[in-house]
Amino acid sequence: MSRLTGRDPSLLRRINSTVVLRALRGSDTSAAHALTLTELVRATELSRPTVEGVVEGLIETGLVAEAPDDPDEAPVPSRRGRPARRFRFRAEAGHLLGVEIGPHRVAAVLSDLTGRIAGTVAREVAETATADVRLERARGTVAELLRRTDVARDTLRAVGVGSPGIVEADGTVRLGTALPGWTGLPLGERLRRSFRCPVLVENDANAGVLAEHWKGAARGVDDVVMVLAGLSPGAGSLIGGRLHRGFGGAAGEIGALHLLGREATPERLLSTTDEPLHPLDEAAVARVFAQARGGDERAGRAMDRFLARLVHDVAALVLALDPELLIVGGWASGLDGVLDPLRAELERYCLRPPRVALSLRGETAVATGALRLALDHVERELFAVEGAEAG
């Protein structure tokens, strides 16, 4: 690769293009707006000829278009001729997709290039479904969403996927005990066959914390832990605003803490009899919690045992990471009174207890976070200058 200098014309063109595109798109994805050439010159501090050339190039790529005259803009009596041309970022130039593949449902959410949601579809799937059946349900859900929104598949620029398990960089699920046939599944490779764009696979709890940081309870907070509280709880963490995956993608797998010499399994913790709870699924757990809220003493003790285990697991993570905010998601986020015991126990165990809040994204968190993955990928493509180095 040749050495680049500040006078390299390809690098300069790329930098100038990025600066103009950022100005048109806006720093906030909801704030894309139309600007005149004069406004672009002022915003970018580039020369007018440079801006004119960049804009024409971006129009050719389809990322920028001339905006119609603003009917609300008051005319200027002294101005002669047509109004100044205005240009806008074409958010509709491509689409992004976020997909959740979970134990009981698959969901898909579609957006334009600013992350503005265009539609969502969710479908149930059996907990016992094979990997092939689950993947086919996910493909069918995506196809239905594209039909409903009248979006062509070839306009997709990136697809993000959230799934339980330890996920490697290439999208392979190294360990996934929550779904049948998931361990060792080349999930990214299997899904890439259905798309002509990058497919990025992430652990579901990691996707969840991205969603809360983007559009949920963690907006404006850069040190966050989100716990997806289920039968085997997992956690996603942001440290300094960056997702912390760990060396092998296994960070936050607090559901495995019971392997460290503890004898009580979730089946026994949640049992209201002398036998382990079977089948151990979310519906069965929901029944136990409903009985507890109804005053059943044995169910109440089972619920207390489960929450105590969850608190201990969460406290270990809080002690290690010292987050500003702890978010509780997953089906446990719907439990009455889950926050008070969490706060009380964290006060006991943690040197500096974090704020505790329920997820604002709820059951949409994983798919929304997967969409954020896709948006991050496209933004790196649109605004990176490294691509010029290959020239």
Rank of each mutant, 00 (worst) to 15 (best):
S2L: 13
R3M: 09
T5E: 10
T5N: 08
P9L: 09
R14K: 14
N16I: 03
T18K: 06
V19L: 10
R25D: 06
S27W: 06
D28M: 01
T29R: 13
A32R: 07
H33A: 14
V41F: 04
L46F: 04
T50A: 11
V55S: 13
E60Q: 15
L63R: 14
P68M: 07
D70K: 11
P71W: 14
D72K: 14
R79A: 15
R82A: 15
R86L: 09
R88V: 15
L97I: 12
G98T: 11
I101Y: 06
H104V: 11
R105T: 10
A108I: 13
L110V: 10
L113C: 08
A118L: 14
G119M: 06
G119L: 09
E124W: 00
E124N: 05
V125G: 05
T130L: 03
V133P: 01
V133I: 13
R137V: 11
A138F: 02
A138P: 08
G140P: 11
V142W: 01
V142T: 08
A143N: 09
E144I: 05
R147G: 02
R147W: 01
L156A: 00
L156M: 03
A158N: 01
A158Q: 02
A158F: 00
G160T: 04
G162P: 00
P164N: 00
V167S: 01
D170R: 04
V173Y: 00
R174E: 12
A178F: 00
L179R: 00
G181V: 02
G181L: 02
T183Y: 01
G184L: 00
P186M: 05
P186T: 09
R190F: 00
L191W: 01
R196Q: 12
P198T: 14
D204I: 02
A205Q: 05
V209S: 03
V209T: 08
A211K: 03
A211S: 12
W214T: 07
W214G: 05
A218E: 12
R219Y: 03
V221I: 14
D222L: 04
D222V: 02
D223G: 03
V225S: 07
L228S: 02
A229N: 05
S232T: 09
G234P: 03
A235M: 08
L238K: 03
G240D: 12
R242K: 08
L243D: 06
G248H: 13
G249L: 07
A256M: 08
A256L: 09
H258K: 05
G261A: 07
R262E: 14
A264C: 09
S271M: 07
S271R: 03
L277D: 04
L280N: 03
L280C: 07
D281P: 06
E282V: 06
A283I: 10
A286N: 10
F289K: 06
A290F: 04
A292E: 13
R293F: 07
E297D: 11
A299Y: 02
A302M: 11
D304S: 14
R305V: 10
A308H: 13
V311W: 04
H312Q: 13
D313R: 00
L321K: 15
L325Y: 07
I327Y: 08
G334Q: 09
D340R: 12
E345M: 07
E347H: 11
R348D: 12
Y349G: 02
P353S: 08
A357W: 00
S359Y: 01
V366S: 03
A367S: 10
A367E: 12
L371C: 09
L373W: 02
A374W: 01
L375H: 12
F383C: 12
V385H: 08
V385A: 15
A390V: 15
